[in-house]
Amino acid sequence: MTSVSEPSVEIKITVAENRLSLMRLVFGYGIQFKVPAGTRVSNFLQQALCTDADYIENRIQTLFMDGRAVDDPESEEIHSPCTLAVSAAMPGVFGAAFRKQGTYSGLRRHCSQIRQDQENRVKQGRIVAVTVKCFNQVAADLGNELLEAGVVMNLKDFLDFWARQGSILEKDNPEVQINHTKIHAREVTEILCQKTGTLRIQINAANTNGG
């Protein structure tokens, strides 16, 4: 179950611009949001990912809610904690089978119907936690702005990310602050592994000219 508690830690990192793509890998782990139950998937994604309906409609070709493909994000609603995963077009028969309203979208189990049964049992007006995973071009398109604005993720996931990618970043000696205190990049794991819950991460590019 996704936690809806406030992040216990805030980390700010200023990286070289060519490292932003590396930082965008955090979107594969998932970023967390809170949303009123009953929010439509499309509206939620527009707000969460700071984008517009056109992007949701056209660029996002594959959209899963808890592993089940969503055909119509305009009508699908969020009623309980869930994970949404968004991707641009996928290759091969897999891509075709799971593409929104693709030729073979009928091959899937009927996600909408299945969820409808659950939703009928859920009262509106509550706040629910949603994890959003952004893959491939979607992360590339939207990730930098989201990172600059700050995103919340599971602290354990961030530690896993850092264990795998931190050494590349550490070499650049980026500027790092945890809860407004400057630290060395090498200390990130040591400090964070004592903490639990979620973390707010904000990334700035050292050179902002490139866009």
Binding site: F64, G67, A69, A85, M90, P91, F94, F98, F135, N136
Partner: peptide
């Protein structure tokens, strides 16, 4: 082709 890993995984 490894672009498929995250998505196939997410699809279960």
């Amino acid at each position: 082709t490894n672009v498929l890993t995250n998505v196939v995984n997410e699809a279960g």
